[in-house]
Design a binder for these strands. Structure first.
Lengths: 152, 152
DNA sequence: GCTTCTCCGCAATTTGGTTGCGAAGATTGT
DNA sequence: ACAATCTTCGCAACCAAATTGCGGAGAAGC
């Protein structure tokens, strides 16, 4: 979809505040309310805007820590990978999971309350997925940046 | 903050749809509109709900690829790290950046249109940050899961 | 068992979302 | 260059949802 400057301004604004009132949004991007709303609806229908979400503070719901887990599979055949993907997708503690080329087979970002919480998760869920040969955990000591705002 | 079952239901619902109408939300969590809205406002004021955002489709704005970059710094002293953190935070292509213990010093998730776009970013921005000694890029071949919904 | 505190639901009010239409500007073809 | 057409705007009326105040019920504490 072709996006002009106004569309981009709309997307930037809605990435900052997804609940901005249409009147305010229209004002910010230099449009009157009705064409502004029309553009937003088009961006939604075109799938440029995928959805709107509330962003929670992880610490306040006892999910303040992030862990990166590198995973090695026993084999890299289609079935093993497919099964791994299906099982990982079911685990709500897993926020991100990528299949990697090179070093490890998969990289997973997990949220947990503390190290014990994570250890339990690793041994009771991650390691038990069929096909998982080895896991190694990397612990960030500090989150420098974590954003949902794509550059546009 | 203490969260009861209804609060958790509210948070789950708003993580799925941050623009859900209050009436629908109230209905879903088993409350009438006004106490439901009151709870939402409290959750916002308490910082449990940090903000609301529009989630864009990265591909549709030409940011369809993710790259992980591991970074090694020349030294790990406070000044070097602080400077690195400040500079990385300024780069809009950087979605996540963590300081790591062990293997590398920092792990960065970057979005780009394609490999050329990424290469340009790496050489023109990442590598030029003072104190950066070495970078290595890992490319996910497939994103199994990527969510903003915290388990609650 | 009485008081107090908390939290709910109802109803009125206000605010913002939504739609239809006419006009202005841009674009294309002659 | 001009005319026809298409696009996209702004205005205004309408409709729906958010917001607020208040009275009452239930739970907790004394």
């Amino acid at each position: 979809m072709k996006l002009d400057d106004i569309d981009k301004r709309i997307l930037r604004a809605l990435q900052r505040n997804g609940r901005m009132a249409n009147n305010d949004l229209a004002n910010e991007v230099g449009l009157s309310p009705s064409p502004c709303l029309r553009r937003v609806k088009l961006l939604e229908e075109a799938g440029v805007i995928d959805r709107y979400v509330a962003v929670l503070n992880p610490a306040s719901i006892d999910k303040g820590l992030t862990f990166f887990t590198r995973i090695w599979l026993k084999t890299q055949d289609e079935d093993t990978i497919q099964h791994f993907a299906t099982e990982v997708a079911k685990l709500p503690q897993v926020m991100e999971c990528y299949l990697m080329l090179g070093d490890c087979d998969a990289l997973v970002r997990v949220v947990a309350a503390d190290v014990n919480d994570y250890r339990r998760f690793q041994s009771e869920h991650l390691s038990r997925i069929k096909g998982v040969q080895n896991v190694k955990t990397d612990v960030p000591s500090w989150t420098i940046k974590y954003t949902s705002e794509l550059p546009i």
